[in-house]
Amino acid sequence: MSRRPDDDQAAWALLRQERERQDRLDSALADLRAEAEHWPLSAWPPERLLAACRQRRNLRTWRHGAWWAAAAAAASLAALAWLGPRLLSPAHGVAATAVPAIQAPAPAPAQVMEATLSQPSSGTFLPLGGPLPADGFVVRVNLPESDLASLGIAAAPGAGPVPAEVLMDQDGVPRGIRFLQ
């Protein structure tokens, strides 16, 4: 295999020619690029685009409002479905009438007292507004004279605190009182 100088020269000439062709192409492309930089262009979106943008905003606002309206309607329907049968059924009336039964004169307060006190006292509880609870608990206290006056009980001056038992409801509200002295 031998190299011929003519082949080398021809190859180099073709390569040079190709290089010149590519350079010419690059130069022309650069001119095209430069020319395009001078094309007049608007700097701000045309009204058509801005209107489309506003429309998007309005649509979004409307969708937002519609979503909340739908959510509110669904919540109302759910509440109605849940509460409706309870408000309209006869069972509701039965429950209402059952309340007096609970508030009816209780089982003997003495039993309650026995359940909660190791040394129960005798006597009945005076109601402090409302019926006596059936399942309350008893707390023993020393009532000062001022508190006796607020209960409408006259105490001898200088008598000091009066021991008493207070019948408490399950919710912690005093329902009855019994004086031990």
């Binding site: 701000w44 979106p45 685009l49 801005l50 943008c53 506003r54 429309q55 998007r56 905003r57 309005n58 979004r60």
Partner: peptide, 11 residues
């Protein structure tokens, strides 16, 4: 979301 200023910058 309808922000015209943002559209302007993108444009």
């Amino acid at each position: 979301a309808g922000d015209e200023e943002a559209l302007g910058v993108l444009y």
